[in-house]
Every structure is written in C-alpha cells, then in structure tokens.
C-alpha cells in the first residue's frame, strides 16, 4: 500500500517521574485506514493518544499530522490541527452539566461558532446515526446507561465530521452484545465519513472487527504490526500470548505471587 501517512510518530519518549511509559515509539497511521493498537494495561496506549493530541508533551521524538510536526506548535496552529480530530473517551467524558444533544453539538457550537438552532438538528441526526431517538437528546448524561453514554460519546466524536477519529477502549465495561453494537457503529460511521482512525483496546473481538491493521504495544514500543488477518499467524510471541490470553509467556505481569 502506498497511502499517504496521516499520523506519524518517530522515537516518541514520555516518562512520568522515573517510569518511562513510551520508550522510543514509532508508528505510522495511513490515510483512510483503521489502525488498532492492542496491549495490556499500563503499556502506554492512552499516553500515546494524548501525546498526539497535545494533551501530554513527550520529552523526545517527533509527531506529525498530515506531514506537519505538531510538537511545539503555537496555540492557533494547534487549534486548527485539533479540528481534524474527534475522540471517543474510555469513560465517555460527557459534560454532565449539559443535555445530551448539547454534548453532541458542543464541538459545533463552542469549537466552530455555529448557532445553537443550526447545531441542534445536526446533533439529533448524529444521535439517530448511533440509534438514539430525539427524546434522548433532552436528557442529561447521568440519566443514561453506560452503553447509551458510549453511543452519545460516539455521536459527539463524529459530530463535526472529523478527518481523524481516536477510540480509547471503546468497548471497555460493556457487555458483549453492547460491545458488538458499538463496534458495528464504529465501523459504519468510519465508512460513512471515510475517516482515518486510531483505536486502542485490549478487547480482541473489538480489534478484529474494526481493524485494517493491528499493532501491538509493549513497554512503550511497538513490538509487532500487521494486517488483521495476519494476527493469528504473526509468529510473534508477545502477540500470541496476548491474543490467547495466556499468563505464561514473554509478557510478565507485575503481580506478587504467593
């Protein structure tokens, strides 16, 4: 494939105190593809997304979006770059002081200065795309179940038709059926938008469903990358251990054994 590189990370390093979370991470996300990064808890998956968004600042390395280096960008340029992004947060991160439709329309109203009356039909349309009726739009996020909150968060992430969407553990904490519903919605919306997506998860069913390519992260580095079809025959001991969920293998969990 000779597709353009949409997001590039080269030698990215990020530490918190003495703990090095990203240790020279290299990764390219091609335009229009759905790349899923898998890995155990605490391996640096979320930190990687936050570094790309500028929420965290790596000590070393380079990050580019559409070929433009994003580290050290001025606030105007950064705002312009962030407009390309949508993100679904692990805990949904809905604003509980706002109604559901206002949450979905937030990026349009506050970020792009659209009038509320114009933004509302768009928000209700996006809610319909994730299978929620207009009556849900008038509720507050606290009145919704976890699965519905995830759907609202998905509607919010796609509301401004972003070029790039990040999914942070989209199915964590959901039952298998609701997980599959969310996965379907992700695949559908991404197809409709033609967006580039970068997802992180440790749910293999989710990864297989939404990924064109899968990358495995371990101790802050990418240890394997390949197509979703190749993952079962990767020959990589880390990947094999992870996808089969074995306790024995090269990945040592930091637990105290009796």
């Amino acid at each position: 494939m000779s597709a353009r590189i949409k997001i590039g990370l080269a030698g990215v390093r990020k530490s918190f105190g003495p703990k090095r979370v990203l240790d020279g991470l290299d990764l390219d996300v091609r335009e229009g593809e759905s790349l899923v990064v898998i890995g155990g808890s605490g391996t640096g998956k979320s930190v990687m997304l936050k570094c790309i968004l500028g929420l965290l600042r790596p000590e070393r390395g380079a990050i580019t979006v559409d070929g433009e280096p994003v580290l050290g960008m001025g606030s105007d340029d950064r705002e312009r770059t962030l407009r390309k992004f949508g993100m679904l947060f692990q805990g949904s991160a809905l604003f509980d002081s706002l109604k559901v439709w206002e949450n979905v329309a937030f990026g349009l109203i506050q970020g792009r200065g659209m009038k509320r009356a114009e933004a509302k039909p768009i928000a209700l349309g996006k809610l319909a795309e994730v299978g929620l009726g207009p009556e849900v739009g008038e509720l507050s996020p606290a009145e919704l179940s976890g699965g519905m909150q995830k759907r609202v968060a998905l509607a919010r992430a796609i509301a401004a038709d972003p070029e790039i969407i990040f999914f942070d553990e989209p199915t964590t904490g959901l039952d298998p059926i609701m997980s599959d519903v969310i996965n379907e919605l992700i695949v559908d919306s991404v197809k409709r938008l033609g967006a580039t997506t970068l997802s992180i998860t440790h749910d293999m069913a989710s990864a297989r469903k939404i990924a064109d390519r899968i990358a495995m992260i371990h101790k802050g580095r990418i240890v394997w990358i390949g197509t979703a079809a190749e993952i079962d025959h990767s020959g990589n001991p880390y990947v094999d251990q992870f996808i089969h969920g074995r306790a024995e293998g090269p990945i040592k969990m930091e637990v105290l054994r009796p």
């Binding site: 936050k50 929420l55 705002e79 962030l82 947060f89 604003f95 990026g107 970020g111 919010r156 401004a160």
Partner: peptide, 17 residues
C-alpha cells in the same frame, strides 16, 4: 471532577480552550 473524568481533555479535542 471534570479533570479526573477526562472532561477537560474532551474540551480540548472539541476545539475549546
């Protein structure tokens, strides 16, 4: 609460300072 539930990060991704 907005900080620990990532709502402040969400503001940034929605182009809001």
């Amino acid at each position: 609460t907005m900080r620990v539930t990532e709502q402040i990060d969400a503001l940034v991704t929605l182009s809001t300072n």
